[in-house]
Amino acid sequence: MLGLPYWNPLIWIFVFIIALALAYYFRSRGQKKYKKGTAQTEIFLSGEAPPEAEERHVKAHNIYWGFFETLKGYYKENMRAHTGIVNDYVIWFVALIALTAVILFVVGLL
């Protein structure tokens, strides 16, 4: 058996609080001021007018775009199997139970 991993969350929280205090101290040494309400606070979009705040975010179905693009062959097959018809899901369920039973039977014979 592989040696078990271990960690102590309490001491991590303790050092994290110390590190937070240090980081906060470093930040407090910096310039606090800025010109509120000027062009300085406008969102940068390469000179274009930024869209409304509600439309600035990546939509949920696009969050994993890189993954979907790379693994589109895999996802395409999976989506084809997900017809939304309950009968199809029951067929999959029964077929997989039958396959599992066959495997267990063969393994039992060996």
């Binding site: 590190a19 980081a23 509120k36 406008e42 705040a53």
Partner: peptide, 25 residues
């Protein structure tokens, strides 16, 4: 450290400011 720390409009200020501190810590 001596340049303006600009808070962009419509930003969620507390989270926007907390992120660098938590990141370094």
């Amino acid at each position: 450290m001596i340049k303006d720390t600009v808070q962009p409009e419509r930003a969620l200020t507390w989270l926007y400011n907390a992120a660098p501190i938590i990141c370094l810590a």
